[in-house]
Simulated assay, not measured.
Amino acid sequence: MSGAPGAAHRVAAPPWGAGDPYADALRTGHGPLFLRRGDGWLLPLDVERWCAAADPVDLEVLERCEGAVLDVGCGPGRLVAALAARGRPALGIDVSEAAVRHTVRRGGQALCRSVFERVPGAGRWDTLLLMDGNIGIGGDPGTLLRRLAQLAAPAGLLVVETAPLDIDERVRVQVVHTGGPGGTAGSPFPWARIGTPALLRCARRTGWRAVGQWAAGGRCFAALRSRRASTAAEPANSRAVISSQRAR
Rank of each mutant, 00 (worst) to 15 (best):
V159Q: 04
R118E: 15
V115Y: 01
A163M: 13
V115G: 06
A223E: 09
T143K: 06
R248T: 15
R227F: 10
R86V: 05
G182I: 12
G180P: 06
L33W: 03
R246E: 15
G217L: 00
W214R: 10
F189C: 06
R124C: 12
V211F: 02
E161G: 07
E161I: 11
N237E: 14
R172T: 15
R37E: 15
V211Y: 07
C65P: 04
C65S: 07
V171G: 04
G139F: 07
L200C: 12
R49D: 05
D94N: 04
L130G: 00
I242F: 08
P21L: 02
R49G: 05
V175E: 01
A52F: 03
W191P: 03
S244P: 13
R10F: 04
G73S: 05
W41E: 15
A163E: 14
V211N: 09
D166V: 11
G217H: 00
V241L: 15
L62R: 04
A223D: 06
A53K: 13
W16D: 13
S96Q: 01
T162K: 04
P141W: 02
W125T: 11
A223I: 03
A236H: 12
R227C: 14
D39W: 09
I242M: 13
G75W: 03
G207D: 12
E48C: 11
G179L: 13
A99M: 04
A215W: 06
R147F: 03
N134A: 07
A12Q: 15
E169W: 09
V160H: 11
I242H: 07
G107E: 13
S238W: 10
E66R: 14
P56H: 09
L33C: 09
W50I: 08
E117P: 03
G218L: 09
G207W: 08
A13C: 11
N134I: 05
G217W: 00
G92S: 09
P76W: 00
R118W: 11
C112V: 13
R225D: 07
T28A: 11
A12P: 11
W50F: 13
C65G: 06
G108C: 04
R86W: 05
P164C: 07
E60A: 11
G133S: 03
F34M: 14
A8C: 13
L158A: 03
A4P: 01
V61Q: 05
C74I: 14
S2P: 02
D140Y: 02
D140N: 08
Q245E: 15
V104G: 02
A216H: 05
G156N: 02
R170C: 13
T231R: 14
W16T: 10
A90N: 08
A247T: 11
G133A: 06
C74Q: 07
R113P: 02
V173M: 03
G182F: 09
V100Y: 02
V175L: 09
S2L: 01
S243D: 15
L70Q: 02
P5R: 00
A203C: 10
P89M: 04
L26Q: 02
P190D: 10
D58M: 08
G156S: 05
R106M: 03
